[in-house]
Nucleic acid binder design. Structure first.
Lengths: 153, 153
DNA sequence: GCACAAACGTTAGTGACACCAACGATCGGA
DNA sequence: TCCGATCGTTGGTGTCACTAACGTTTGTGC
């Protein structure tokens, strides 16, 4: 029941940068999802584990800000990670509103597994590009993204 | 309650092409959604109308293949478009399994409105890039997308 | 001619991601 | 001490993509 390959692509779509970006993102998302699903994980898990590993223990709110995940979604994702003991949630003694979330040793092992998968995915995704082109693409996307990350400020 | 601007971005994420693409797509998607919502439309509507305008009347299945929209989602989107009389659904006399979907004059007017909105969105989205850089980005994305569009075939 | 596989439209449901609204609890500054 | 802000949590929404199952119709092989 999967969506079949297109007969043809309307030029009205094929020329639109927004369409190219979102469609490429769909493909990238599929590769990432499949890669992570093999280890029973999803994007939010990697983003949270990587953020924890890089910045150390943090409150859920800080975690959300850093990983770009909405606070209410952080709750659900942390529940899933905590259940498998990849993170530990403990009340912050110095501020009883907060939970301090810490990555565990098992969490670090899982993170390494996820990173490995994702490295393969990058290679798959950018397969048709030369190293130089990959760098170009990365640079251009980073510029666009940066511009829309703090446009108002 | 919107997701606040990030404090910092984990380098583990910022360096991943798949992350750059999907995050940029999120921004692009927001711009597109907002632009189309102003005319009470969404992405699927534009894709269907553009496909109809470019290739002429077609069955729903063909429409789905060309626009890259899953057949079951075509049904719902066409319901919405038909309700506002942007398209007409008529049984195909030569094959009673099929519906022949045709864009109406009102549908073409709506399509022009959507195209106008989307043109503005492209400019917003790529604001930080020079015309040459925009072309580079478009070209690179098209290459990546093409590679993942028919990998099996 | 007839069985059977394939295509078509439709309904109903899933999953990932991003987002909103409201709540009780807690904190901190005026 | 009051009041606004922050924190975690719950329960919803929207978009896009996809799956499963169904009854109908078509065309092909036999």
């Amino acid at each position: 029941m999967e969506n079949p390959e297109p007969d043809v692509v309307p030029t009205r779509l094929a020329g639109l940068p927004s369409w190219l970006i979102t469609q490429t993102a769909v493909r990238a998302g599929r590769l990432v999802s499949d890669g992570l699903a093999a280890v029973d994980a999803r994007g939010y898990h990697f983003r949270l584990l990587a953020t924890l590993d890089e910045f150390g223990p943090a409150s859920q709110a800080a975690l959300g800000r850093r990983s770009g995940i909405h606070v209410s979604d952080v709750v659900a994702a942390l529940n899933e990670l905590a259940e498998r003991e990849f993170v530990v949630r403990a009340p912050d003694p110095s501020d009883r509103r907060r939970n301090v979330v810490t990555i565990t040793a098992a969490g670090r092992r899982q993170l390494r597994r996820l990173e490995k998968r994702l490295a393969e995915v990058q290679d798959d995704l950018l397969a048709p590009l030369t190293p130089d082109e990959r760098a170009d693409l990365t640079r251009l996307l980073a510029r666009v993204l940066a511009h829309h990350t703090r446009p108002s400020v």
